[in-house]
Nucleic acid binder design. Structure first.
Lengths: 127, 127
DNA sequence: GCACTAATAACAACTGTTGTCAATAAGAAA
DNA sequence: TTTCTTATTGACAACAGTTGTTATTAGTGC
C-alpha cells in the first residue's frame, strides 16, 4: 500500500502541526482553502484523521461539539469555555485540589467535568 | 409556568430513576413504547432533558456516542468498553495510580481517557 | 512519457439531537 | 362535570458533525 504526499496532505499537516489553537476540521478547512481553493472539507477530515492515526496529531473528541486536533502530544487535558468557546490546555496530574489549582492556574471557574474512560472490559481483553 | 404530570413524563421518570444501566434515549424509548405505544422519541428526549435539568437524572455526554442518563447522582466517572459498548461506573478520587486501580477494581484495560472540563473563562465570569 | 492506483472532489447519507407547530390533554376554575 | 387555558405532545423537518461512495485526478515508479 503505497503512500503519496499530496499537496493537500502536506498543507494540512504543516498547518495543523504548527497550530497552537486546537483547530476543528472546519477551522483547518477555512485556512487551507486560502491556498488550495478547491480543496474539499471531506479531504480535510480524511487527512486530519490520517495524521491522528499516525500519531502526528491527537484527536480530541468533545461531547456535543466538533472534534479538535491537537499538536501537543504530551498527556494533558482541556478546558472549554461554555460562554465563548475558548479551548485551552491544562497540564494537571493530581485530582486532589484540582479545581482550586485550575482556578489558580488560569482563572477558569469549572462548572462541569465529563470524564469517560475508554477501555476494554475483562471479557474482551485480547490475551 | 404551570407544570403538568403527564403519563409520558411519569413513566419515563419511573423507568430512568430506577435504571442502573445508563440508558440512552433510544434505550428508554424502546422500553417505554411497550406501555405507551404511541409515544414519540422526541418526547423521550424532551423529558429526559427536563429530568436532568431538574437534577433528577444526570446526563452523560459521551464523545461520538449517544448521551446516557444516569440515576446515580454522586460524583463518579464512567468506562465505556470500546469492544462491546458496556458502560459502567467507576468511583475514583485520586488520579495517581488511577489506571492500576481501575484495572484492580474491574479488570478494564484503559486505552484512552478524554477529559474535557467545562467552565467559564476569566473574562466571562459573572461577578 | 506512461501505467498504476492512492487520493481527491462532489455528493449523498448517516447519527444523534433539537426546532416547529397544530393537535391533545392536564389541571384550575366555574 | 363541563369548560377553559395552556403545557405537553406527536409528527415531521432540520440541524451539526462526520463518514460512505464513486468517478475523476494526480503522485510515484518505471
Amino acid at each position: 500500500m503505497e503512500r503519496r504526499n499530496t499537496r493537500q496532505l502536506e498543507t494540512i499537516r504543516n498547518f495543523a502541526e504548527h497550530s497552537k489553537s486546537h483547530p476543528t476540521a472546519e477551522d483547518v478547512y477555512r485556512e487551507i482553502v486560502k491556498t488550495i481553493p478547491d480543496i474539499s472539507l471531506r479531504t480535510v477530515y480524511r487527512n486530519l484523521n490520517k495524521l491522528s492515526d499516525e500519531g502526528i496529531l491527537r484527536k480530541i473528541q468533545v461531547p456535543n461539539a466538533p472534534d479538535r486536533f491537537d499538536s501537543t502530544l504530551e498527556p494533558h487535558q482541556h478546558i472549554l469555555c461554555t460562554e465563548c468557546g475558548e479551548f485551552i490546555d491544562v497540564f494537571m496530574n493530581n485530582e486532589e485540589r484540582l479545581l482550586a489549582e485550575i482556578k489558580d492556574l488560569c482563572g477558569y471557574e469549572i462548572t462541569g467535568i465529563d470524564v469517560v474512560y475508554r477501555g476494554v472490559c475483562p471479557t474482551h481483553t485480547k490475551k
